[in-house]
Design a protein around this nucleic acid. Structure first.
Lengths: 331, 331
DNA sequence: GGTTTACACGTAATCGCTTACATTTTACAG
DNA sequence: CTGTAAAATGTAAGCGATTACGTGTAAACC
């Protein structure tokens, strides 16, 4: 590991001062074209690349941001959060941010928060614990939340249009004659319970359709639990003719349950999911689902974080990303 | 953004030198218990946290590593690579590394490689382009590859036991009387083509079973393509009684194709996948698959990177992670 | 008690870059 | 050709930690 060349080496070889070398790299138009070329040439020869650490030190700005996934109902293994991550990665690279990724839990148990000091902004994915948020804010790092929204918190949130999604689903279902609709909700994600489920209740009420207690079941974050919950729903006397799954995995569970009961899909039962994960086209019948532009959500997060970091004043507190209903064979 | 407290502030408040403050944090046993307490107390009062940037600057060590996903057949959206990512995240946190995540493409198009300078080690996921590898090595950053293995390259690789996986599948299938076995391979992932597919050919030959050209089809990275490929296989005169999909998505496509032809599973056709993704239990029939401990693979990557960074000499060039066949209803 | 040794702590140089301010060079008008 | 403003470049002081080296103090030995 031969010591890497520094700005001094370039300075010496190119015959200009270190200040000029520095400018040649970070403010190209403040230096004469000819000298800039000399500098770049010398850098080329020496295999010099500016040392970002030293740069951060001098500038008092690290351009480092982090994506913390809060395990409560969220994980990078979930296509949805992975999609957001993908969007964040792209946007971060484009804006020349360095992106750290971690789960909130690991993050805290590991280097406590000492790390935070060098992170200028954090994107919180999923159900972030309030104390994490206030801790971050007290260390004045910029915070943006994605797929979550907490009352009384002053920070930008990026969410998908849950209400609109449910409307679209119910429009679709009612236009096919469904009036008795149920839902299986994953209790593992508080935000989704609060958003998708209550949207469902509201929309149904507005349409003058009733939802009985027995039309809704809760389940855990695995397919077997979802299947069991769906069985509960379907084995009752007067079962719904359509059921929403709070995500595609749950919807898949509903389909499995329907199969066990020898129900025909979509004739005897319509099933709709959320997220439009890849599984939708893998199962039989293909699953009608709500497509969410997670990539865009991720990109928006970075945009907002950037705005926050640049001290812009009018960063929207709530950004709602529109969704789309993808109708397939299951409904 | 009030300026953050520095080691000087703590030094002043606690009445000791900056050197002692520094030691109190990074070499606790080199300082008397009583003074250490004083220091920590002062730090507490001031909300002081050591500035990792400055620390990195002084120590000439950043403890920063990166996970670069090489899009060629790999993406964070794939549960497999997400699982590896998860493992890397955990291990990185545990070892107090900062983890940057990006796709190789974004990485290069964005800040070129300037960034590299501050990254001490890189984990390459998927099919890394050779020039990227040599570029990294020439800047002497430690490199580890996961789920890939290139001839003539001197770096640690972590892969799953493809050969063993195939053996297990074929043991299972032949014990159920299958002698005519086909495969659908994704042409999008060169390594998998090279590993899973050739293992398949070898194992079949060893068992004295023949594989005709028409028993193998290639497909692209989407389910429709996989389904089409499977149809090709299944619509011929003398079709295989069992088919391997090079991953679970492809296997799902095979199942769809079988359904279209009204084949019964597993009676008329056995299907087996690789990766044991969550989709395996979502589809009907549930898919027999090879479980890969991706989390462990990720952790191993970090271990090896760490060893490399600590200049350990005997870092294994190849680590093969054992797999397990999960038998379900599709076979 | 005096000398040695180990330990705790302090002083100050250093890491590689940025940037305010000073100085020199260039461009251009008169 | 000269004077002046603008542009280009140079000088050097930080940024906030670490750490080699030096000093002072207390324990340990004879």
């Amino acid at each position: 590991m031969a010591a890497n060349p520094t700005i001094y080496d370039v300075s010496r070889l190119s015959g200009v001062s270190t200040a000029t070398v520095s400018r040649a790299f970070s403010e190209p138009d403040k230096v004469r074209e000819s000298t800039r070329r000399k500098v770049l040439e010398a850098a080329e020869v020496l295999h010099y690349y500016p040392n970002a650490i030293a740069r951060a030190m001098a500038r008092q700005r690290t351009d480092k941001i982090a994506y913390l996934i809060c395990k409560q109902g969220a994980t990078i293994l979930d296509e949805f959060y992975a999609g957001i991550c993908d969007g964040i990665m792209h946007a971060a690279n484009r804006s020349d941010y360095q992106l750290l990724v971690s789960t909130a839990e690991d993050w805290r148990t590991a280097g406590s928060t000492a790390q935070s000091k060098q992170i200028e902004g954090v994107i919180l994915g999923g159900n972030a614990p309030p104390d994490l948020i206030s801790e971050l804010q007290s260390q004045n790092v910029a915070v943006v939340m994605v797929n979550n929204q907490l009352p009384g918190l002053d920070l930008p949130c990026v969410v998908s249009d849950e209400q609109g999604s449910v409307e679209k689903i119910l429009d679709h279902l009612t236009s096919h004659g469904h009036r008795h609709v149920g839902m299986v909700v994953g209790r593992f994600n508080p935000y989704i319970v609060g958003a998708r489920y209550t949207s469902f209740l509201n929309s149904m009420r507005e349409r003058g359709l009733s939802v009985r207690k027995s039309d809704v079941e809760m389940c855990d974050a695995n397919i077997e639990s979802a299947t069991q919950a769906a069985l509960q729903l379907l084995e009752q006397e007067n079962r719904p003719t359509a059921i929403l799954g709070a995500n595609d995995m749950i919807a898949a569970g509903i389909i499995k349950a329907a199969r066990r009961l020898n129900l025909r899909l979509p004739e005897d039962l319509a099933v709709v999911g959320f997220d439009d994960a890849s599984v939708c086209t893998m199962i039989e019948p293909e699953l009608t689902s709500i497509h969410i532009n997670c990539r865009q959500m991720g990109e928006l997060c970075v945009e907002h974080l950037k705005a926050l970091l640049n001290r812009e004043t009018n960063v929207p507190r709530l950004t709602v990303v529109p969704t789309e209903l993808i109708v397939r064979r299951s409904s």
